[in-house]
Design a protein around this nucleic acid. Sequence first.
DNA 1: TTGTACGCGTTATCAT
DNA 2: ATGATAACGCGTACAA
Lengths: 354, 354
Amino acid sequence: VSSVTIVDVAQRVGVSVATISRYLSGLTVRQEEDIRVAIADLKYRPSVTARNLKSGRTGTIAVIVPDISNPFFSAIVQGAESAAGDEYMVLLVNTADSNDREERALGKVFGRVDGVILAPNNEMTKSPNFFSNFGLPIVFVDRLTENSENFDSVLVDNVRGAELATRHLIELGHFKIAIISGPMETTPGKLRVEGYRNALKKAKLRAQPEYFQESDFSQSGGYQAMKALLNLAERPTAVFTANNLMTIGALEAIRESGISIPDDISLIGFDDLDFAHIIEPPLTVISRDVRLQGAKAMEMLLDRLRGNVSFPPQHQMVEVQMIERGSCAAPSFGNSHGLGISSSLKNSNPRSNN
Amino acid sequence: VSSVTIVDVAQRVGVSVATISRYLSGLTVRQEEDIRVAIADLKYRPSVTARNLKSGRTGTIAVIVPDISNPFFSAIVQGAESAAGDEYMVLLVNTADSNDREERALGKVFGRVDGVILAPNNEMTKSPNFFSNFGLPIVFVDRLTENSENFDSVLVDNVRGAELATRHLIELGHFKIAIISGPMETTPGKLRVEGYRNALKKAKLRAQPEYFQESDFSQSGGYQAMKALLNLAERPTAVFTANNLMTIGALEAIRESGISIPDDISLIGFDDLDFAHIIEPPLTVISRDVRLQGAKAMEMLLDRLRGNVSFPPQHQMVEVQMIERGSCAAPSFGNSHGLGISSSLKNSNPRSNN
DNA sequence: TTGTACGCGTTATCAT
DNA sequence: ATGATAACGCGTACAA
């Protein structure tokens, strides 16, 4: 676009292009001052593209996520961007939860970037193979794929987080504990169910199939799953929602049904919501530092890029913590199970609007 | 990275590089089949960088926003990304509300992108000059700068939105109406105040200085501003918060103070929140299609890029609409001040819900 | 310190 | 339809 090249500057000053190039690289040259003014005068800007071609590097890193509209992935992107520093910029791609789009995205970024931070749609994608072919550095964030153990990754402690949540409910006295889970073919989907089941097992509680709702990590999915749970003859007294969006959906369904948190049902979600402390009751959640997770992914990638390509794949984990607020309480046994009638009193409250 | 180039393929097949290049461009060549297998065999991938150098185009568009963690800007980015199509990818930059970083960002993206979508930090930045120097297509989104009328832009109808909100409060019977405004040096900050004042003027209401709180579009800013309003001797009966984040902050402050919405105070915000309908009471807001706005910006840019560089600067506007939910009601005069009885007849209608 | 000249991987022009 | 070759803009080894 700029059309004024290094030769224009050279001619203007009356030196060779090499001299200009050296000046640009910070080397000491004779006519520094003349060159400076010539550059300013001509409004010369070095061509990034030409430099890329020479150097073989692009100064760009791709961040590929399934759903930017999910605040979780926004935060990942934000963390990665902030950690990129002055040296690298981030190329953002949304795969819209489609494996097809994900693979095309990988094809599209190839050659434009020096590395990739990928949150794959699910574990079935063949992304790793793609990259092992070409030797592009890649780090997986939040989610893995088959064979991805050969690559760097930054996960969260999914199992522990889910166990923490479930145990909390158990300790409050619940035993009819449901889970609204993400897709079992995703890493967090699978592992959070594992944590849930671990906790039940340790408490010698049986994992009842009707309390397991596999959903899709979306708000509407969470809504429908919660609806289903509420329609059960013997509905759970507590539920663990496996991600932020589904927690919102579940909340919606609960609000709509007119039952109250935590009196009628306890709710705990994986990942905090920025309004969790504002609503009534404030939501108890399993939380983690998402931006940090994104930043760590970027840092691992930068390490690779800085030549330390040798060391074996690193697998980092971000800690979780439970933030107790007001959405979990001991179960009330007044109305509960026993004999099918349980839910008859539910429709006693005539809130129809909204 | 791939190190296998077009000449490798050419040698393998036994033709010249020109032939391979032609095959790649879709022209008909003799040994199509041989070439195909050679490419697959060698795992050859054309160098994007080399192509960029030749063509002078990068296939990339920069999207520069002040704060990706703000869901509003996330949605802008998302809209832009989705509208980019197969031809372009988006390079994301966060300026973290710093003019310095914004200008450095412009410098960094220069040469790497074919165009820019910019939401400037404020109207004081000299970004437009920067671009007019180099002739890089740019479209402003959501915010303008001085002299930016010479460039494409996609705004929202700020004045109308603010007027709508304020008028709604007036019609409910409020006359002690406060605004928590964004920075006056930003476009939405300035124009939403204008709309607020317009509405007051049309109703022959005086804009009282103590009811004007200039804040910074952040959650904590909204929180503090609302705190200040609540501490007033004669506190407002209604407040209009000029963006999403400040609405959240205001909500926090109100919750904390123990007064109730809408009985003690009415609240209406500019821009919807994804949990606005979940909380109690659900929030009345001025809403717009943010993703559409981002998508429009991208489309305008693509139009320019497709050669229609000639037509004069376009200034599009996205429509707003009010979504009435439950956070605004007629003022209750039980506890309040002296004798502004004027609007007493309005609270005869007990519309509280939805 | 400076200049010359080649190469980075492609595409496009010009002959053939 | 194909081949040779000159650009694209820059960095750098080499020689001076």
